[in-house]
Design a protein around this nucleic acid. Structure first.
Length: 644
RNA sequence: GCCGCUGUAGCUCAGUGGUAGAGCGCGUCAUUGGUAAUGACGAGGCCGGAAGUUCAAUUCUUCCCAGCGGCACCA
């Protein structure tokens, strides 16, 4: 290449700068202005992020990324990971560094070390990180030959790094980054120097174990998590957000509002209390109405089923470790972990005609799964749960229309619960699966065609299908931006085959039906957990365990309070009364804390006029209404969204 | 299941090698008050379970169980 050739850089606004030879991003930024030079983080060269110090030798389209850009976050977090690694390496020379990527909201780094880190270590490491930032070391990129790099790291005693390099495909450039005397294998890019990460913009959060390369057969490494932001203010906002999320934690609210509890003797299996069960029943009644509307038939199937059926269905082979079993009458029985094989048994009774299809069988099926102890998490991951499960038995040419109808139903349900931000994922065949590849080809094509015809946007989730078929997964986003996968639709050609389901077609011949497994809420337990966190316990009236509390100003109104309470009950409202000889302030405070949506206060005046003074949760306003008017307002509002 | 941390009154938590304490809640009594805490008194604990060390264990050690934070798993 001609060394003196001009290099012309084109900026996003179309302006052009020409240099007499290779030029770095730093130089370009400085030429444009000192402000930009200071704020610049990396430069995007023809769509690829480059370090500012890297020489651009060809004419290129470039964009300078500054610390004001969202894209800066990832780079900065990645740097934070390197700084963490340098600090740890310095403080604990016996560790081996492995990998340390940027993640949502922060970064982590995995270290191989015999002794685990303690939270005290974190404080020390954090201090040392601040020192590294204050030293403001240049971060220097270099390239190295593959074999040299492997030897280089092996000689340093960094076997994990050597293993990582060995796994990089031949021919790919291996880049190293050096800051001071710390060198790490890294794709980059990085900030120009360690000082560019604000010393008060990051925080180490927690230590945890993590398997080397994410494989539970491998040894466990020590992972340190941190968070990093562009400004101190952003960091603070993030920490506040975490605190807010913690206040919504359904386990905490579940205790406060007496919704449910767990105990050792039944780990992972909720005990529903009256308040929680009220919510549960509302949700169930709602779904039952929806299913009726969409022509589902509800059934109920046994809890304990002979192992033979699970062997036939294929579940035994894949999931026996996670099934509860028992023995009785010299039969091996398993508590059902799912409902589908039982639903096929219902389908198989008698002879089904093509005229009966699609046949939609729904069950609020109570299932048990022996989940690994470490997976349990409040209501979100339990060992006993109930699904809003249903199986649609149909012919192949009904898959598309059934999918469309299901998607419509699901969207209605989510909207009624207040979730409007829904993502769809398409999961195709997993590595371990049942059925022939041609069967999978067909199932995947059918489902793809179906989802395309719904017009919904979806993303591909490769290899994440169920073992018997591909699936759509529906992910909703809650009030504080967290995603929850709830709904699912799975196309299954395998189970009908295995359990020998058939129907008589118009040609008078025997045909295999297709099974569509589908759920909208997923499990009631988990969905209610999500609702608790979504609403932070302040449920809309139709779900609230207690909808209204009536109380008097003095005990002179006790009889009247009882009458109002009776009228509320007669109106079908979930009412309570509070006759304690406490001051009104005290009672208001207490019922507000209990998140009761409405408080009716009746004093001498209200009793006289047959009115109530209404105070709604979240408002300090009060309004005096005729009793019958107040009851009507609540009655209307307490209707479920599908009943309005 | 794996790594780490935690387990004390109904709840939230303090504490100690010599068998325990606070606030809230709960009960009793007084108080009858107009929209986020009226006061006094009182009752509550096998300090997660089992072993071990010790004159003595809630405290130290080991194992188990459960919870929490991650990892892995999730039909």
């Amino acid at each position: 290449m001609n060394k003196t050739a001009n290099v012309t850089l084109t900026l996003p606004d179309g302006s052009v700068r020409t240099y007499p030879g290779p030029v770095t991003g730093s130089t370009l930024a400085a030429d444009i202005g000192p402000g930009l030079a200071k704020a610049a983080i990396v430069i995007v060269v023809n769509g690829e992020q480059w370090d500012l110090a890297r020489k651009i030798e060809q004419d290129s389209d470039v964009t300078i990324i500054t610390n004001r850009d969202e894209a800066a976050l990832e780079i900065l977090r990645h740097d934070a990971a390197h700084i963490l690694a340098e600090a740890v390496k310095k403080l604990y020379p016996d560790v081996q560094v492995t990998i340390g990527p940027a993640i949502d909201n922060g970064f982590y780094y995995d270290f191989a070390r015999k002794i685990p880190f303690t939270t005290d270590d974190l404080v020390i490491i954090e201090k040392h990180m601040v020192e590294i930032i204050e030293r403001d070391e240049d971060i220097i990129r270099s390239e190295m030959d593959r074999d040299d790099a492997i030897k280089f790291f092996r000689d340093m005693g960094e076997d994990y790094k050597a293993e990582l390099i060995a796994a990089i495909p031949e021919g790919q450039t291996i880049t190293l980054y050096r800051q001071g005397d710390f060198i790490d294998l890294c794709r980059g890019p990085h900030l120009p120097s360690t000082g560019r990460l604000g010393k008060d913009c990051f925080k180490l959060m927690k230590v945890a174990g993590a398997y080397w390369r994410g494989d539970s057969n491998n040894e466990m490494l020590q992972r340190i998590y941190g968070t990093a932001w562009r400004t101190k203010k952003e960091l603070k906002a993030y920490l506040t957000r975490l605190e807010e999320a913690e206040k919504r934690d359904h386990r905490k609210i579940g205790k406060q509002m007496k919704l449910f509890h767990f105990q050792e003797e039944a780990a992972g299996m909720p005990f529903w209390h009256p308040n929680g069960w009220t919510i549960y029943q509302q949700v169930e009644a709602y779904i039952r109405r929806k299913q009726k509307k969409y022509d589902y038939q509800e059934i109920k199937t046994p809890q304990l089923v002979d192992r033979v059926l699970w062997e036939k269905s294929g579940h035994w082979e894949k999931f026996r470790e996670h099934m509860y079993t028992t023995e009785s009458d010299s039969r091996n029985l398993a508590l059902k972990p799912m409902n589908c094989p039982c639903h096929v048994q219902v389908f198989n009774q008698g002879i089904v005609s093509y005229r009966d299809l699609p046949l939609r069988l729904a069950e609020f099926g109570s299932c048990h799964r022996y989940e690994p102890s470490g997976a349990l998490h409040g209501l979100m991951r339990v060992r006993s749960f109930v699904q809003d499960d249903a199986h649609i038995f149909c012919s192949k040419d009904q898959i598309t229309s059934e999918t469309e109808i299901f998607c419509k139903m699901l969207m209605e349900v989510y909207e009624d619960f207040g979730f409007t931000d829904i993502k769809v994922k398409f999961s195709d065949r997993p590595e371990i699966r049942a059925g022939l590849d041609i069967t999978w080809d067909e199932a995947e094509n059918c489902l793809l065609e179906a989802v395309n015809s719904t017009g919904l946007d979806y993303t591909l989730n490769p290899g994440e299908g169920a073992f018997y078929g591909p699936k759509l997964e529906f992910v909703l986003t809650d009030a504080i931006g967290r995603d929850w996968q709830c709904g699912t639709l799975q196309v299954d050609f395998v189970l009908p085959e295995r359990l020998d389901a058939s129907y008589i077609g118009s040609d008078n011949g025997k045909h295999r039906p297709v099974m569509l497994h589908r759920a909208i809420l997923g499990s009631f337990e988990r969905f209610i957990g999500i609702l608790i966190e979504e609403h932070a316990g302040r449920f809309p009236l139709w779900l609230a365990p207690t909808q209204v509390v009536v109380t008097g100003i003095t005990s002179d109104q006790d009889d009247h309070v009882r009458k109002v309470y009776e009228q509320l009950k007669a109106a079908g409202l979930r009412a309570e009364m509070d006759l304690r000889s406490e001051k009104i302030n005290y009672k208001i405070r207490e019922h507000s804390h209990a998140k009761t949506p409405a408080i009716f206060v009746v004093g001498a005046r209200e009793q006289e006029e047959n009115t109530v003074t209404v105070r709604r949760l979240g408002s300090k306003q009060q309004q005096t209404l005729d009793l019958s008017a107040a009851i009507n307002v609540l009655k209307l509002e307490s209707l479920a969204p599908d009943q309005r």
